[in-house]
């Protein structure tokens, strides 16, 4: 039995459709959500969302947010989210280097230092997602690709 899933960020609908299972990085650990899950509200940690449908897996990065689960519907309010094919690996790599340099320069536990830490984490997640989950060949955009309205 499929469950309806929506991934929305503040500036666009990242993806919406039916899924067999959705795995999200919840505040207290990874959660796999199937249909008829108990109603749940949870914050999200930065990480990767996995959407399974018809045996296929799709991956989205998420930098944080909130997930709302109802028995027939999962809504992810993401701070920022991207499908793995949307990620620009080179830019993510640059962002990682920039963040690392900034991290060295700024004194610990200042606002800049924390921001750099967060930026580094974001860049790492994106790089990780690209390297692990990007389809090696074939069409870059699959049928489950996000509708880009931005």
């Amino acid at each position: 039995m499929p469950i309806h899933c929506e991934i929305v960020s503040q500036d666009r609908m990242v993806w919406s459709g039916e899924a067999d299972m959705v795995v999200v990085p919840g505040a207290s650990g990874e959660m796999g959500i199937l249909a008829n899950h108990a109603p749940l509200l949870s914050t999200l940690k930065p990480g990767i969302i996995k959407v399974v449908r018809d045996g296929q897996e799709d991956y989205y990065t998420v930098t944080g947010g909130v997930v709302e689960v109802r028995p027939d519907k999962v809504t992810i309010l993401a701070d920022a989210s991207e499908h793995v094919t949307e990620i620009d690996e080179r830019r993510a790599e640059e962002a990682r280097k920039r963040a690392e340099e900034l991290l060295k320069k700024t004194p610990p536990s200042t606002a800049e230092h924390l921001a750099a830490q967060a930026a580094l984490q974001r860049a790492r997640i994106r790089l990780d997602a690209v390297r692990r989950f990007r389809p090696k060949s074939g069409p870059q955009i699959q049928s489950g690709a996000p509708e880009d309205k931005g």
Binding site: A27, S28, A38, P39, L40, L41, S42, T43
Partner: peptide, 9 residues
């Protein structure tokens, strides 16, 4: 009869 939500955290 909305079951109350589970909140995490």
């Amino acid at each position: 009869a909305v079951a109350s939500y589970i909140y995490e955290p």
